[in-house]
Amino acid sequence: MWTYYRDVTLYALTICLLFGIASAPVRESVAGGIITTLVVFAVFGTGLGVLGFHYFQKQQYYMYYNLGYTKRYLISRVWFINFTLGCFFALLLSPFI
């Protein structure tokens, strides 16, 4: 389960980081840009990470299936953790906008 979380989240972080860097010129403040990136990560990051995992490591799902984890279970857990973390850090940074 942890390896799935790590792999999906690495894809998610990479994509969201690239999004954050690409959108930096149109942001009014650094903190605002980071918060937007964190919100994108919290809401869409897991979905993007799952797409990355599906594209590069799809076959590994069979390892998790054999261990009793369905795709829905894996994705929902990762989404819940990343949503919570993304929102937490976004709220933490919100006073600096």
Partner: peptide, 20 residues
């Protein structure tokens, strides 16, 4: 059939390698 994986009724060795 949806309960096969969570209940671990059946193990499956697919054709292609699945290990990290």
């Amino acid at each position: 059939p949806e309960s096969v994986i969570p209940e671990q009724y059946i193990g499956y060795l697919p054709q292609d390698s699945f290990l990290p």
